[in-house]
Design a protein around this nucleic acid. Sequence first.
DNA 1: TAGATTGTTAATCGATTAACAATC
DNA 2: TAGATTGTTAATCGATTAACAATC
Lengths: 227, 227
Amino acid sequence: MPPKGNKRAISPKVVARMSRYRRLLLNLLHDKTEAVYSHELARLCGSTAPQVRKDLVTIRCSGCPAKGYNVRELLEQIQEFLDAPDGQQVALVGVGNLGRAILGYFAGRRLHLNIAAAFDRDPEKVDRVVHGCRCHHLDELASIVREKRIDVAILAVPAAAAQELADQLVLAGVRGILNFVPVPLRVPRGVYVEDADMTSSLECVAFFAREGADRQRNTRERHNHTG
Amino acid sequence: MPPKGNKRAISPKVVARMSRYRRLLLNLLHDKTEAVYSHELARLCGSTAPQVRKDLVTIRCSGCPAKGYNVRELLEQIQEFLDAPDGQQVALVGVGNLGRAILGYFAGRRLHLNIAAAFDRDPEKVDRVVHGCRCHHLDELASIVREKRIDVAILAVPAAAAQELADQLVLAGVRGILNFVPVPLRVPRGVYVEDADMTSSLECVAFFAREGADRQRNTRERHNHTG
DNA sequence: TAGATTGTTAATCGATTAACAATC
DNA sequence: TAGATTGTTAATCGATTAACAATC
């Protein structure tokens, strides 16, 4: 029995969809579109109209039957839902091939998330600046995480070091980890881990490429009769 | 109503878990462990014993109450389930920061999946070899995909080019796409797409780091009373 | 008003979890 | 036999989907 509390629980899937709605709404705003219907948003993000409406109700957004949803209003409410008022600081742990690519990837984007520090054990990397982010030695992890009030971490280290570093991160105050290491992390309650295991994902794609199964989203396409 | 057919459908989640079991079993084999119980596997991969047993039943693996599951046998059956008999060829489309990191990541691993070719539009990258993989011009995509019998693709290109390239890939015979581009791809039925949207994942982690929600897996920890 | 959309409430679907007989 | 595990069958849970009254 989950505690439920006074608010209904938000599932990771809902948050991920919010993130996608935000991106689409930014595009629509850029195109000076003033209002959207749920079925338009659904088409743009590969979902369904009822799903979109339900998501928007979840975060107390409302539209009107005549015009749909006001893009600017919707965007503001989704931002308010997704973003911390003062932004959030992120640490990258592990500056190998993948770590550097991740830095480069996020450096280009204007997120409310800021990669405030990177960490590695390799002296070659320490004190260098990669894609605008300073790399520190792992020894400084706890102090810098505390100092910069970092509460999110991206873990991209060798498998053998993953659990130990996760423990250190949690001890230092990190409450969420995006885990690129193909190792299941054990974390205390209250800490959120999302696995981004590329090997597992690729093997899954290969399996269905071979076996020819559809994922559910494709099945839904039938309902989006547009044009 | 999904067609169901004569075999029960396999869900992506099951396949992803199989991939994780495989990795753990390889470790166990390396340690010369001969047999495992479901609860040991469950602990190692952050799942539950009934879940593991059900998964193994799904692919017709059986264990015996006295010894659990034979590691070597289990591994063989999971390999048979996951891997194509003759291997599968993969194309990487987009050799930017992320693309190169992906190449480096998979180059180190011995998978039954082989990244057979990379593609980019940039003349600077064409004909270069990155992490052991030759980079071709996008113009050659269709011919090389057909020639090398590639049926899986990793998409890591700018958002604006994603849909067009996905269309080309599908036309050339690709049946599965691992999509790192934060754009929903429209593909015909029978083509499987898995989204690996890092921005969305990171925003999700940041949200729960702030809101302090547990993911379900953490809740399950209570059942694994070990030691 | 008529047509289309919103947002709620109920129904369906699937996956996870629990319970238990069979097995070693 | 006794204790623990396997694998099945039933129950629970949550999320998605459908149905419909309210709204513009």
